[in-house]
């Protein structure tokens, strides 16, 4: 799926928190959104997902392959686990797609395996640790195989071994399904590792967009330089 944003503004209580005159996301690419706290990353993802309506402007979804069902999956920044088992949590979205029970469970188990959580499948999801829950949340989102996948800080609480799994899984879904993936992160190295392009946000605006190597090595914008100033390997 290809996405185009035109003149998007989001206003909360008279405060403009998102102001994007134009932004295009190409089909089958991985985008990393970076920026300080409160710069509007989550707001951008919510508007892309359709959960929040923009106060102004339009989002166009183009070049969709499947038209009969909503082709967007979204993982919120605050992970919520339903009071069910890990497997049931993972299967929920697949069943909604009318994939039959055993097939859905097979897909769910595969997804859990990708994030190293398959041995937890019968456990109560409410008993998981923060990082474990985040991995399951990622698995249940990526398992859906949607054309546009939006991940809000998918690995912020995940340990280093987990981060490795998660990054591989994201790339794998991107390659296998040709999904367009947008994720936010506070880790520029992570963006450099897996993103085709990075989008730098500041004060609700997109201040820079381009290949990670370009943006990180020679930022064109003062706000990008300020943002990257404290980054050390």
């Amino acid at each position: 799926m290809r996405v185009e944003l035109k003149g998007i503004k989001k206003i909360y209580h008279d405060k403009v928190v998102l102001d994007i005159s134009s932004l295009g996301l190409e089909k089958g690419k991985i985008y990393a959104v970076l920026g300080p706290n409160g710069s509007g990353k989550t707001t951008l993802l919510k508007i892309l997902s359709g959960i929040e309506k923009a106060s102004e402007g339009l989002v166009h979804y183009l070049d969709m392959e499947m038209l009969q069902e909503k082709q967007i999956a979204y993982m919120p920044q605050k992970v919520y686990m339903f009071d069910l088992t890990v497997l049931e949590n993972t299967v929920l979205g697949l069943k909604e797609r009318k994939i039959c029970g055993t097939e859905a469970e097979k897909l769910a188990m595969e997804a859990l395996e990708q994030v190293g959580m398959n041995s937890f499948s019968r456990k109560k999801a409410r008993c998981l640790s923060g990082g474990e829950a985040q991995r399951v949340a990622l698995a249940r989102t990526l398992a859906l195989g949607k054309e546009l996948v939006l991940l809000d800080e998918p690995a912020s609480a995940t340990d280093i071994a987990g981060v490795d799994l998660v990054e591989k899984y994201i790339c794998c879904v991107n390659e296998k399904n040709g999904s367009t993936i947008v994720f936010t992160t506070h880790n520029p190295s992570q963006a450099a590792r897996i993103a085709d392009e990075v989008i730098i946000m500041s004060g609700g605006r997109v201040v820079e967009k381009g290949k990670p190597s370009m943006v990180f090595n020679s930022p064109q914008n003062q706000e990008t330089r300020d943002f990257l100033k404290s980054w050390r390997i």
Partner: peptide, 23 residues
């Protein structure tokens, strides 16, 4: 949180209401 999570997983309105009741 539940609405966001359900919408993110593509669950429909009826299913979302049911999950809300369940939770």
């Amino acid at each position: 949180a539940i609405r966001e999570t359900c919408a993110g997983l593509g669950l429909g309105n009826i299913r979302t209401l049911f999950m809300l009741f369940h939770e």
